[in-house]
Computed example of a mutant assay.
Amino acid sequence: MERGELRGGVVVRAIRAEEWQRVRELRLEALRDPVAELAFLETYEEVAVKPDSFWEGRAAGAAEGTRERQQFIAETAGGEWVGTVVVLLEEAGSLDVFGGVVEREQAHVVGVFVRPGYRGGAAGVTGALFEAALEWAWAAGVERVRLFVHDRNARAEAFYRKAGFVVSGVALPGPAGVGGRELEYVVERRV
């Protein structure tokens, strides 16, 4: 599932299972980002020690053609991965990543990361990643996509609003040691 080329030769596509080492590399870089404690539920220290089998399974479970989740990456013409987003399908009655019960069938965007040199630039990497994520979710048949953002992550909140997401009114406590709140943002499928 490859998307059209963006400015600067960047292409958005789904990962392939055999790319697990690159999935690991990009995730570890994301977890070293200055706002990682606000943006991710995992820490670098927790996942850096995971065995190869963990990363192989993670990539296989989110690779092109999977039904439950899909990971998209933005890749330069030279093969560098410069951003990623993961979309999880949530079934009504299942538990979400926070341990809460999912009330309706929907998709959940997680793991958003774009390398600093590609954020907010003319190439539109983050927007293209979200376009791919939403297109995949809508094709899976959901009518609603959600994500959570820490109330101190103003840069992310601004992008999500620009991408059409609105605050739902649901708020959860922020990660232990970080405080604050995780705000749910949603977008409904436009028919």
Rank of each mutant, 00 (worst) to 15 (best):
M1Y: 06
M1K: 09
G4K: 07
E5S: 12
R7M: 04
A14F: 00
A14T: 12
I15G: 01
I15Y: 01
R16W: 02
A17F: 06
E18T: 05
R24W: 07
R24K: 15
E25M: 07
E25I: 06
L26D: 04
R27H: 10
R32P: 00
P34W: 11
P34N: 08
L38I: 03
E42S: 14
E45K: 02
E45W: 03
E46R: 14
E46K: 14
V47T: 11
V47W: 05
S53M: 08
W55P: 02
A60V: 01
G61E: 03
E64M: 11
G65N: 04
G65F: 07
Q70S: 15
Q71W: 06
F72A: 07
I73T: 08
E75A: 05
G78I: 10
G78C: 06
G79A: 02
W81N: 07
T84S: 14
V85T: 14
V87D: 03
L89H: 07
E91I: 00
A92C: 03
S94P: 04
S94N: 09
L95K: 07
D96Y: 06
D96H: 05
F98G: 00
V101S: 07
V102F: 14
E103L: 09
R104N: 05
V109E: 05
V110S: 11
F113E: 01
F113R: 06
F113Y: 15
V114P: 01
V114M: 02
V114C: 02
Y118S: 04
R119E: 04
R119P: 03
G120S: 08
G121R: 12
G124W: 13
T126C: 10
A128F: 12
L129S: 05
E131V: 10
A132P: 01
L134V: 04
A139D: 14
A139E: 15
V142C: 03
E143R: 13
V145L: 08
D151A: 01
D151M: 02
A158Q: 12
K162R: 14
G164W: 14
V166L: 11
V166I: 10
S168M: 09
V170F: 01
L172W: 07
P173D: 15
A176E: 12
E182A: 00
V187K: 15
V187T: 13
